[in-house]
Design a protein around this nucleic acid. Structure first.
Lengths: 221, 221
DNA sequence: TGTTGATTAAATCAGATGATTAAATAATTT
DNA sequence: AAATTATTTAATCATCTGATTTAATCAACA
């Protein structure tokens, strides 16, 4: 009954699924590993690493706690899998666009504003989750985030430097990211006070898709 | 030996301190309660509520765990004391300036930019700590943050609405706060990759004291 | 059909953690 | 001096939590 520990790592990721009613929920079709990961995404993102209990994840997955360790060996390992995904999602998402040498500064700004806001609208907890986990445990992420050097040296930043030689391009880059990301970080504040409804907030974001590019272009004049 | 539980609440906050060498560290002069609170500020802010152990706080305070519960009854209660302080610090700090009916929009912007950046430079973990604790546990803070309604209905926001009638003033308010706060939230990302030195970051912030007002005024034209 | 792997349920473990208590001592107050 | 309060040390509790194990069941499948 006892298996070599390394075996855990090679548990197959997919299970042959029988034909099923289209009616049945998509989740049912997920492999067990994927069910755990999906549950982990939800719980980790909502509560953060320290406040998340492995039992929470098992419940959320509708599966058994023993099986979680059978697949992932530890809470820590499962977390790292999710965290790498999330860091990628937050930073790598815009990286190709920012490094496209065939688009102008303005085109990059337009595209990123619209698409980043849309992505974040679907994943509103993503920024604060990633950023607060990095703060809590900066050492762990030194490895994961070489991306940033990449983003900071992107074609986009070079274009900013050319356009406004008198100003540190990182300043403008921070403004751009900040105007896109900050609303999602501040959201819980307004929301917890019911000072702003969901509808109002979504309208705000929708407007931002065109407003942020306008403001950025003002700063480039 | 057993005391009524309510007694804990009324433990005196100050202890008569004898004359001491000026040489002696300031901390030595602090009352025990204040030592615990100072330790709690440090540890909670750095690691967040869930990852903080009461033993960490006692160590940091150089005092013993039993005494922590003697003074504060529970981790939860101590946390709430610190959290209220921090929320105040983050939001109430700028509230008087934003509600001053004798200053122009531009004057408010200039003052807040400089002073908020200076305050945050001294408390760089403050924004992400407060915002991520609110996200983790929004219910708890519904009571604490009536401030926001206050800030959202500030004189500053009214002035924004007058100046740019075509645009939701919350948009501009978000930009303002975002440009001031976001660098502190993004800091760990750049920093953990050593993509940016402390000196570079501080210079960036120093420049921002004058740059942010310039950008804000562009958006108001 | 029998074998194998996937999954569950349940119990258990060890260590962490928030909290409490008791007894002794130091410091302050009255 | 006596009484009260503050603080320490140390032990102890109950619970939580990540992890492991065992035995039984279920599904696939050859």
């Amino acid at each position: 009954m006892i298996k070599s520990k390394t075996l855990f790592i090679f548990v197959p990721s997919t299970i042959a699924t029988k034909e099923m009613d289209e009616q049945e929920k998509a989740e049912v079709n997920l492999s067990t590993e994927e069910k755990f990961k999906e549950a982990a995404r939800i719980v980790f993102t909502k509560k953060g690493y320290a406040a998340t209990k492995t039992r929470n994840i098992a419940e959320q997955a509708g599966l058994n706690l023993a099986l979680l360790n059978y697949y992932f060996r530890s809470k820590e390992k499962l977390f790292e899998i999710i965290m790498i995904e999330k860091v990628q999602q937050l930073f790598a998402f815009i990286s190709p666009a920012l490094n496209d040498t065939n688009t102008s500064l303005e085109e990059k700004i337009d595209w990123v504003a619209v698409n980043y806001i849309e992505m974040l609208t679907k994943n509103p907890d993503l920024p604060i989750f990633v950023l607060s986990e990095i703060r809590t445990n900066p050492e762990r992420f030194a490895k994961i985030i070489q991306l940033n050097t990449f983003v900071l040296k992107s074609h986009f930043v070079k274009q900013l430097a050319e356009r406004k030689p008198g100003i540190n391009p990182v300043q403008l880059f921070l403004n751009f990211l900040g105007m896109l990301i900050f609303p999602f970080i501040a959201k819980p504040v307004f929301h917890s006070t019911s000072a702003m409804s969901d509808d109002m907030f979504n309208q705000l974001l929708e407007d931002r898709k065109t407003l942020v590019p306008k403001w950025m272009k003002l700063m480039l004049e």
